[in-house]
Amino acid sequence: MKENLKRLFEYRELLFNLTRKEVKVKYKNSFLGFIWSLVTPLMMLVVFYVAFGVIFKLRAMDMKYYAFYLMAGILPWNFLSQTLTQGVASVVMNSDLVKKVYFPREVLPLSYLGSASFHFLLQEAMLIVFLLAFRVPLTPWIFMLPVLMLLEAVFIAGLTLLLSTLNVFFRDVQHFTEILLMAWFWMTPIVYPISQIRDNLPAWAAKLYMLNPMTHIVLMWQRITYNSPVNGPASYSMSPAGVIGTVACSLGLLIVGYVTFTRLEGRFAEFI
């Protein structure tokens, strides 16, 4: 494993170049270009705001600044879903390269993580600008943003490496991922506050709900970017057990994902 990591380090420039290529190419032939990276989450925001804020009146539950609450959760969610949908198929999609050129294959899924990170940072910057513009007080936790982003990146990297390996051998994985992401989205407190889960689900179901690492990650994002009292007491959204568990789970997943990937990558060229 040490050798594999050394090899990855040697190829850091390729990772950087592929990431750059991904960023450059994504909106290359579109008129709006980079603006799309910001427009997409804003459109999602409008849709959810109208559906849940206006039609279902979640606002009635005393949710001031519901739009910001939504943004605080949607952005980190998009970070996950963007990376995962592209990263899982990355090895298969780049079969031309995998069959013809040698390089550490983990660079492929990781480059999608890289380009998604870039867009995510842009979007977070936009969120902060909006918060300032609308005079919503920033929380002192905002400085944890890089740390939290790193934690989420570790979690996503582990999952993407694992699933992209499996996808080489079972192409079902990439289709399954789409469905998984949809279900997962609603199992995470993004459009509704976590208090809904506490109040409406039986205790065992709520406990189960809290086993989802993305729940904790999104809660933390909400806590540091936009902290609403409706979201429950701070202790609920950032319990030490939840944070430690999420960190442990993310690191564990990364190790499992990385080891699986590097163990099997020698056979990729034959399978795709």
Partner: peptide, 30 residues
């Protein structure tokens, strides 16, 4: 290795940009 010419060229990038990309795929530094 020249196993297939132009393996790893990206159609949307320019020739110059592809030189950088291709060289790093082959493991060479900037």
């Amino acid at each position: 290795a020249l196993l297939e010419l132009g393996a790893g060229f990206h159609p949307d990038l320019t020739g110059r940009e592809n030189i950088y990309l291709n060289a790093s795929i082959l493991g060479f530094k900037r």
